[in-house]
Design a protein around this nucleic acid. Structure first.
Lengths: 342, 342
DNA sequence: GTGAAAGCGCTAACAG
DNA sequence: CTGTTAGCGCTTTCAC
């Protein structure tokens, strides 16, 4: 039952060529110190000569690990997650692990499918964004004992392993900075909250801050919309028509905020003189606008790096890094000014 | 010699549970029509019951394919390539292929390593950006008969399979639009040209256009720099000090252009009244700046989709789509205006 | 329509 | 230090 072989040279070819056993070749590649200098040489020569590259599937099958981690993010077509992914990838590649990236368009069903696909591919660990998802999904992953880390989120009470920041607290801090500028008519442009715990928490945080000052965040002052530039513009147009008009608008992310600033300008008003706008994330875009965008800096890079670190440790049965709670820092910039005098 | 098994249910478990052979289960999963309705049912129930998910490595080993494609891009921490990757991924996932993404920081050595890593992982095909790389790399890939497609680039004479546009022609078109506005003092902010054929071609294209009008692109009017916002700012500061000062600056990409506009504003000058700025790529950012950025729209999405399509076809031994030459379109926006009167 | 069994390329006991 | 050999989980002839 001769099967068509792949055509690529295999370990066995190398072994034959070097006049050693396959085990020796395998050792030479994985644990060279255990070989005598001259055999090592012979094997290396054979590898070189044949242009041998190890077959990954064979290795994975025998080792029960793939040296692959998965990351499932809402979108890659956007700067929000890309820096974190880049950092994650850099950290992983130090351990010769490759990162499989999948995106979901913020759709839970797509997320489920992508997670299943990655698991079938035998990823050694999984990074997901946020906490909100079906319990059955968590059960599925738990049953497989798959190392799992949630990023972009951190809550003391979370039953899961999080690496990130507390969205509610951070949003509260943002709102506090706005309140410091004596704004009392504050509105919010939020991302779609359905299936998005970060968006929910950020609204809650803003509410917290206002409440602490005896203010209320009226529902009419919250516009919920897609995470896009044009959506931000439209949302701001809506808010501009509200009575009384808000003097400060807190946006769930920098892209929305940039779109919002655009709307303000279109309406013939000035940021921050007439209306202050603040964002969230501090992606590069935030310093490219004019005025530059005041925003909450999220530790993208650290999050990605620590997520990778955590997964690597979990995979080897080690404990995760103890402190996975990262800080966000408010970055005051031109788009936030004092409330206009009445 | 009992080996520790993975713990996950296997095909064999399913087979036993359903009272059929492993061959039948395999068929049920891959080619269900060949089974009788009732056996199919039984197998499905067993799969369900055990929470079976096929092991990818086993499959890859037996099939000589991994249902995985690789993409190696200079950076993911940036919008430039992300839309194309997103499109590629979407197209691939329709065929149940996952995309492995690796990045190189514009470094040829890193690129070489990443390509090797992906090949070792048995990707069924590879997408690379641009043409310029060591001949030995191309030989390596050819020897493996690995489906290969180059994107972000297209040249009639290219010996490789390209999906994209002609950077030189597109750059020439950009320059032509600038010339239409009667600019004669034209400068350029370019990405690093070393190891980057797109950057080289874009400069050449601008040269072509100027030459056709009897103008020259003085070397002192070209600043070569990293692909970053701040680099664009610095580069523009340099250009502002040139005598005579350019009245229009063509940038190799939108991020540089945005940085350049920032420098103009800082210098107390106006875009486009004093200096016009044009970009390249038309990433979202281009419509978020003010004034909005005139730029060359690159067919990101189509490129990614067609790259995927091409790889899929090549993998099955089919011919690639015949027309892989895509068009770029100049998008006139506020940042490009007529040359100031002298 | 279904089963038996070989084999994909690699690793890891175990023996020597 | 090195060789022998039994799998890892899946697909695919070849018989029945």
């Amino acid at each position: 039952m001769e099967r068509r072989r792949s055509g690529q040279p295999t370990l066995e070819d190398v072994a034959r060529h070097a006049g050693v056993s396959t085990a020796t070749v395998s050792r030479c590649l994985n644990d060279p110190d255990r070989l005598r200098e001259d055999t090592r040489q012979r094997v290396h020569q054979a590898v070189e000569h044949l242009g041998y590259a190890p077959n990954f599937a064979g290795r994975a099958l025998a080792m029960h690990r793939t040296d692959t981690m998965g990351a499932v993010v809402p979108t890659i077509d956007n700067a929000i997650f890309s820096r974190g992914l880049q950092a994650m990838q850099e950290r992983l590649s130090r351990d010769n692990i490759t990162l499989l990236i999948a995106s979901t368009n913020y759709d839970p069903e797509q997320e489920r499918r992508q997670i299943h696909a990655l698991v079938a591919r035998g990823v050694d660990g999984l990074m997901l964004i946020g906490e909100a998802r079906d319990a059955s999904l968590y059960e599925f992953l738990e049953a497989r004992r798959l190392p799992l880390v949630l990023t972009w989120v951190w809550r003391l009470e979370s039953p899961h392993l999080c690496v990130g920041f507390d969205n509610r607290v951070s949003a509260r801090d943002v709102a506090a900075k706005v309140l410091e500028q004596n704004h009392t008519h504050i509105a919010m442009i939020s991302g779609i909250t359905r299936h998005n715990d970060r968006a929910v928490q950020r609204i809650a945080g803003v509410r917290d801050a206002l409440q602490a000052r005896g203010l209320r965040l009226d529902d009419r002052m919250i516009v919920e919309t897609q995470f896009e530039f044009t959506a931000g513009t439209t949302a701001m147009q809506t808010l501009l028509s509200r009575e009384p008009r808000p003097t400060a608008v807190i946006c769930s992310n920098d892209v929305l905020a940039t779109g919002a600033m655009y709307a303000v300008r279109q309406a013939g008003l000035l940021v921050p003189d007439d209306i202050s706008v603040v964002g969230f994330d501090d992606i590069d875009l935030a310093s490219m606008t004019s005025p530059q965008l005041a925003t909450m800096r999220v530790p993208h890079y650290q999050m990605g790096e620590m997520a990778a670190e955590t997964l690597i440790r979990l995979r080897s049965g080690l404990t995760p890094p103890p402190d996975r709670h990262l800080e966000t820092v408010f970055v005051p910039r031109g788009s936030l000014g004092p409330a206009p005098a009445v």
